[in-house]
């Protein structure tokens, strides 16, 4: 067990925890606009954590550079897709949930 593997394990654990919590959030929140919060950011951070963990496992070479490219790509693309979804729902007239409304 070298230090890189241990850091990798810790980051994988944190990342998987984030991803699981994000999924619980998608199930529990009451409407579309609140659901998009866990799906849009907790998920992204969890995925970045898992991939950075793999970078630590790999050490520094061309393969870990490719992992880094995937991390940057996800960090650019995920918020954009989230924005496009939220914007499309908003324009089509989905009303945001207010406190006290019924769950959808």
């Amino acid at each position: 067990m070298d230090i890189g593997t241990i850091i990798c394990g810790v980051l994988l654990f944190i990342g998987c925890f984030f991803i699981l919590v994000a999924s619980v959030g998608v199930l529990r929140f009451p409407d579309f606009f609140t659901r998009i919060h866990p799906a849009g950011k907790t998920d992204t951070l969890g995925q970045a954590c898992v991939l950075i963990g793999l970078i630590f496992y790999e050490g520094f070479d061309f393969i870990s550079l490719k992992l880094l490219i995937i991390v940057v790509f996800l960090l650019v693309v995920n918020p954009t897709a989230t924005y496009a979804l939220a914007n499309a729902a908003f324009i089509s007239g989905v009303k945001p949930w207010k406190k006290g409304d019924k769950r959808q």
């Binding site: 994000a22 999924s23 998608v26 579309f32 659901r35 998009i36 799906a39 998920d43 897709a81 979804l85 499309a88 729902a89 089509s92 989905v94």
Partner: peptide, 9 residues
Amino acid sequence: YDRLLAINS
């Protein structure tokens, strides 16, 4: 949109 969110996720 919920379904699309799930698919994207």
